[in-house]
Amino acid sequence: MKRSNAKKKPGTGAFRIKRSLFAGPYIVWMAIFILSPMLLILYYAFTSDGSFTLEYLRAALGWDYFRVLLDSVRFALYTTVLCLLLGYPVAYLLSRMKKSTAALLSVFFIVPMWMNFLLRTYAWKVLLGAFTNILYTESAVLLGMVYNFLPFMILPVYTTLIKLDESYIEAASDLGANATRTFLKVVLPLSMPGVVSGVTMVFIPSTTTFAISQLLGGGKTMLYGDLIYMKFITEQSWNAGSALSVILLVFVLLSMALMKKAERGASEEEGDRLW
């Protein structure tokens, strides 16, 4: 009895502190390899030869570069809309199937997410070059982007749709709604949280994509990622490149905040409908 008490004391007294100490190595790693690199980008974006300047940031917001950002956003919007139009029906049809069939099929739609994106893009380059004449055009870039990001739309929409309570659909048809009306008034609104997170998962990576436009656009289509690449690697201008990266990061954070808000709105709406 005495012994166990003696043993318990160092355990309980020290363990709250002790257990959090297990995160120590990670926190050190994080400070060196996550935080300090980001601080370096900020440093280069706001300085020139070590002294403070807004020159590069102003240049990054100038029309020449801002136009490229708008172009990237335009491409990302096209990609997102196409992914939604192609991906929503896939998710919907899968969700209406028998559970085990749907589980198997959905794996096949999601597996491409995990396959080397560069090789998949390269495969399209070979295909388009051999069988069509659209290689090195904007359409080829768009095709490559839709192809790469489609699974990221299917997955979240599918996940919300399978959670949808079957009885809502039955209730709607019992009350006389036809299939189209049921879909528009019941299924679609209830799947909005999935749509919003799908849009986030497609829109943000496609604004920042790099290499797809180089492989399929042949350097004719310049997206923001390619611009940053050019500043850092071709022109070796770290300050200009860092300033552009900061702008990109701010843009990404803003759009994420916007999507988060939309997501909350979408699920609140769902809540309203539930009660």
Partner: peptide, 9 residues
């Protein structure tokens, strides 16, 4: 972070 920014940083 976009991969691009992580890589560059």
């Amino acid at each position: 972070n976009p991969d691009l920014v992580t890589g560059i940083s």
